[in-house]
Computed example of a mutant assay.
Amino acid sequence: MLPAGKTAIVHGGSGAVGAAVARAFAREGAAVHLTGRTLPPLDDTARRIRDAGGVAHAARLDATDRAAADRHADAAAAAGHGIDIYFNATSHEDVQGSPLLDPALADVLRPVTKAVTTTLTTAAAAARHMVQRGGGVLLVPAGGRETIPDLGGSHLTWSALTGVCRQLAAELGPHGVRVAWLLSPGSPAPGEENRADERALLAERPAYEDVANAAVFAAFDRARTMTATELDLTGGLVPD
């Protein structure tokens, strides 16, 4: 389990990935602060966590609003003893399915701009508290090493987020704050066939629980020397 008394912020906590990660952090004993654009699904995730014996709080948040992100981080830190874990699963309105030569430039750049904005806005809010305490972990789904055609703005978005994570790791490392990103090929929806891309080395894609378990490992003290690095969950689709 995570050391007792940890505080985790999960942005995009009503989505499939964010909710799974939030539940996993809560199972490990962390108090989880969920944010998203609409409250009802956030409240549902928080209720499920509390019903399972965990601690969860839900708040509506525009992740592009720096002042709002700062206020939320301040409140989460005050409710515990600072902020220990940050996970950003906000949606980016990705554009896929056509070559880069076809879509309008605005369609390609829109998810890049949104992803970088929300990540920098919310990560900075949490990191300020981590720096004060001399430790913490920032986790972001990212990537960018794939060689798959027709990913459009999605691939550029993941690459941009990887760059953001590397620079944050360089700047925050001296303060004891680690940064890592999770590369996943996408998880199957409930009832969907869980077959990996034929180019992958393993037969199945990661379930949401697999992504959540990787996030828990990265947040755990046993990964205390891991930073500026990627957790590859692609089953060999993107080999090292």
Rank of each mutant, 00 (worst) to 15 (best):
M1T: 15
M1I: 14
T7N: 03
A8F: 04
V10D: 02
G12A: 11
G12R: 02
G18L: 14
G18R: 12
R23H: 10
R23T: 14
A24Q: 12
A26Q: 02
R27A: 05
R27Q: 11
E28W: 00
E28D: 07
E28M: 01
A30I: 03
A30F: 01
V32K: 07
H33S: 14
H33Y: 15
T35Y: 03
G36N: 03
L39W: 04
D44T: 10
A46S: 09
R47Y: 11
I49G: 01
R50P: 05
R50D: 07
D51I: 09
H57R: 09
R60F: 02
L61N: 15
D65I: 07
R66C: 13
A67T: 08
A68L: 07
A69Y: 03
D70I: 10
R71V: 02
H81K: 13
G82A: 01
Y86K: 06
Y86H: 14
N88H: 05
N88G: 01
A89T: 14
S91L: 00
H92F: 08
E93Q: 08
D94C: 02
D94V: 01
G97H: 06
S98I: 00
P99N: 09
L100W: 09
L101P: 03
D102C: 01
D107T: 10
L109C: 03
P111M: 03
T113S: 02
V116I: 14
T119E: 00
L120Y: 04
L120P: 08
A123L: 07
A123E: 05
A125N: 04
H129Y: 02
G134M: 09
V137H: 12
V140W: 01
V140P: 02
P141Q: 06
P149Q: 06
D150I: 06
G152N: 04
G153K: 05
S154F: 00
T157K: 06
T157S: 06
T157Q: 03
W158P: 02
A160G: 05
A170Q: 15
L172N: 01
L172S: 00
G176C: 09
V179A: 10
V179M: 11
P185R: 13
P185S: 07
G186Y: 05
A189W: 08
E192P: 09
N194A: 12
R195L: 14
A196H: 12
A196V: 02
D197H: 15
E198R: 08
L201D: 07
L201H: 12
E204F: 07
R205G: 12
R205N: 08
V211I: 15
N213S: 12
N213R: 12
A215K: 06
A215F: 05
A218S: 09
A218H: 05
A223Q: 08
T227M: 13
T227H: 14
A228G: 13
T229A: 04
D232H: 11
T234Y: 13
L237M: 10
V238T: 15
P239Y: 10
P239Q: 05
P239T: 13
